[in-house]
Design a protein around this nucleic acid. Sequence first.
DNA 1: GCAAAAGTGTTGTACTTACACCCATGG
DNA 2: CCATGGGTGTAAGTACAACACTTTTGC
Lengths: 230, 230
Amino acid sequence: MIPAYYTNNSRFLIAVDCIIFGFRNKELHLLLTRRPVEPMKNEWSLMGGFMDEQESLNEAAVKILYRYTKQKNIYMEQVGAYGDLNRDSGDRVVSVAFFGLVKMEQFDTSLAKEYDARWTNINELPQLIFDHNKMVQDALTLLRYKVSTEPVIFNFFEERFTLPALQDLYEAIFQMPLDKRNFRKKLTTMNLLDKLDVKEKETSKRGAYYYIFNPNKYLSFLEMGKRFSL
Amino acid sequence: MIPAYYTNNSRFLIAVDCIIFGFRNKELHLLLTRRPVEPMKNEWSLMGGFMDEQESLNEAAVKILYRYTKQKNIYMEQVGAYGDLNRDSGDRVVSVAFFGLVKMEQFDTSLAKEYDARWTNINELPQLIFDHNKMVQDALTLLRYKVSTEPVIFNFFEERFTLPALQDLYEAIFQMPLDKRNFRKKLTTMNLLDKLDVKEKETSKRGAYYYIFNPNKYLSFLEMGKRFSL
DNA sequence: GCAAAAGTGTTGTACTTACACCCATGG
DNA sequence: CCATGGGTGTAAGTACAACACTTTTGC
C-alpha cells in the first residue's frame, strides 16, 4: 500500500552508462560500442543499460560492467546523474554514469564480437551519442582526483605491475610527462608496495621488477595519519 | 513515437533532495524540515521534492531550492544519485542530491512557518530520514573540495564580507582552526579581492574592513595559469 | 658493442607552518 | 583605561622540481 504522496508523481526511465577504463600499450583506453538500436543506431556509445525494479543503482552498474567485461569486483565510482530534458532523443531518460577500472590484460576478446565492444584510445575518441562525451570528460576528472588521493590506480593491473608501467599509466591519465626519479621517490616514501624478485622482460632487455600493492601497509599508513598522494 | 527499446523498461520516481548550507554566527547551518507526510511523518528531513516530466534534473533542483528559500541564482552542485532498493520506505525512489549555498543574511523567515523550515547547526544535526545523513556527509565532503579549489565560498555572503568572517566560515566548514596570518597571506597573494573603505562594526569595536570578490581579477588570475587554493 | 629501457641522489626553490605584538574603539 | 577583536612580518622546516649518469641485456 503506497501512500498517495508518491503515486501522483511522474516516473522515469533510469539508465546506467559506464565509462570503462583500461590501460594497455602506454595508453588509456575506453570500451565503446556501436549502438545497436534506434535512435542513433550504429553511432559510438558508452556501455549502458536500463535499471530494473529489483536492483539498486549500484547493482545496475555492476550488472552493466559484468555484462560487457565478464569481470567481477570491478572498482567503480559514480560519476553523477544526467537529467537534461532531451539528452536521449528516444525518450525521457535520466542516466547515472559510473566509471570502472578493468584489467585489460585479462580482457575476454570474444566480447568484442558479442557486443561489438571495442577498446578506443582515449586520445582518439570519436563523437559519442547524447551527452556521453560529457560523461567521459567528467569521469576523467573524477578519475584524476581519485588516483591522486587514493590507491585505486592498482585496479588497472591484474595483480603485479612494474614501476615504468605505473608511471606510464599516470602519464596517460594526466596527459603529462612525469619525472621518473620524483615519481619513484614518492612511491618509495609512502612504502605501500612490495617488490617481487621477478622481472617483466617483454618491454625491455634489462627487465623491470614487478611490485604489488600491499593493503596492510596501506592500513598502517592510514593509521599513522598520512594520506595517499601521487 | 517511442521506440520499443524504451517502452519495455521500468520507470521510477525521481526525487531531488537539497542540502542547503548557510553561515551565521560563526557556524555552518543546514536548512531542515519536519517531514509533512507518511511514512516518517514529522521526522527530520532534507528539503526535497519529486522531479516533474517537463523539467530537467537541474531545473528540479532549482525549483526545490527556490521553493524553500525564495532565492534565485543559488550556487549549487550535484552531490550524486542515491538508488538503494529500500532507501525510501514509502516506495522505490531514486534521489539525486544537490547542495546549495544560500545567503543566510537575507533569509526570509516567513518560510520557516510555511514549510516548517529551520536552520540547524551542522554540529547538532539530528538523525534524518532515509539516507539523508549520508547525503549530508557526502555534500560536506564535496563542499570542502569545492571551496578549497574554486572561489565558491563567496556565495555564502550577500555581496561583501570581512576577512574574520571568511576565516570563521572556513573554520566552520573544515572544523579546524586556521592561522589568521597564514590565511590572510594566501588571500592577499592570490589578489582576488577588493578592499572597501567601509567597516563592519557589529562584531567588534575597531571594526573589520569589508571586501568583495572581484571576478575580473579571478579571470586574469586564471589566465596566468594559476589556480585557486585555500 | 650498441641501442634501449631500468634504476638511482642531490641541490636549489617555493611553499607551508609556527609564532607575538601593536592597533583601534566602545563602553 | 581596559577589554575585545583586527591587523601585520619573519624565520624555520618541509615538500617539490630540476637534473645526468650508470646498469643490464638482447640483438
